[in-house]
């Protein structure tokens, strides 16, 4: 039932031309080269170390792997991570 509602929301947003991240409460992840990752619309920090950062987002987790990771700024909705970024991926 819930997944059907999501599908409906997605279809409506697409048909109305609305941004999907706003309409479906999804994260927006901006990767600046291999030096910075900005995660917008996050739901909190789950795990943090020099080599791995896991941030909770709507629909799963964003995982950043790298070296010397530092959280430059963290706010209620956005987070800026810098360091040597190896990979950024989404886990459901």
């Amino acid at each position: 039932m819930r997944s059907k509602m999501k599908e409906l929301h997605k279809a409506m947003a697409e048909s109305l031309g609305l941004p999907l991240d706003l309409a479906l409460d999804l994260p927006r992840v901006i990767v600046v080269g291999a030096v910075q990752v900005i995660i917008l619309n996050h739901r909190g920090l789950i795990q943090y170390s020099k080599t791995k950062l896991v941030a909770g987002v709507g629909g799963g987790q964003v995982v950043v792997d790298g070296e010397g990771l530092e959280i430059e700024e963290i706010g209620p909705e956005d987070m800026a991570v810098k360091g040597v970024i190896r990979s950024v991926h989404m886990e459901a």
Binding site: G44, L45, Y48, S49, E70, I71, E72, I74, P76
Partner: peptide, 26 residues
């Protein structure tokens, strides 16, 4: 779980910056 402290700080509006791991501590 120091990450939880950061989440609590953010939810209470306490500004934090320049976060990094040093010798197992935050």
């Amino acid at each position: 779980n120091p990450a939880r402290l950061l989440n609590l700080c953010v939810s209470r509006g306490i500004p934090v910056s320049g976060i990094r791991e040093e010798d197992g501590a935050l």
